[in-house]
Amino acid sequence: MQSQRKTHVSTTVNGEPREFLCEPHQVLSDVLRNTLNLTGTKEGCNTGDCGACSVLLDGTLVCSCLVLAAEVEGKGVVTVEGIGEEGKLHPIQQKLLEHAGLQCGICTPGIVIASRALLEKNPDPSETEVRYWLAGNLCRCTGYDKIIRAVLDAGAVMRGQ
């Protein structure tokens, strides 16, 4: 397995052109974290069950542990590091802080990414819609209550309410 030739990948990460070499079997979360040093994307299971590694791939919400790194050739990846504007938190991030929607914080990057994907698709979701959208993002600390409130509130801010 070590003798296989590495694959060269050109992609865009958080709006910046990036190139990397990866093994054919390497997954995107591994390359983001350990090659590109973008450790904001977390790994909780590597089987697509916990959502901590959520990123946007050409705007689509994916578990980066289930995407082969070589697959992102020519595509655009958005990670938690690329969510806020320079020096300013995104409303989802701000509302998570105001509502105390995190305790340990390990699921938070995934929640931020998944919520942004939701609010872009559905700017005014119901509580139930938020709950089902985030059903793939496990949080063991909060019981979800404050996360759901934060996302609903962020939606209101983004709608200009």
Binding site: T39, K42, E43, E81, Q93, L96, G105, P109
Partner: peptide, 13 residues
Amino acid sequence: GPDKVTGRARYGA
């Protein structure tokens, strides 16, 4: 908080 919502906070791995 800001470090934890932006991914800057560093965990075990």
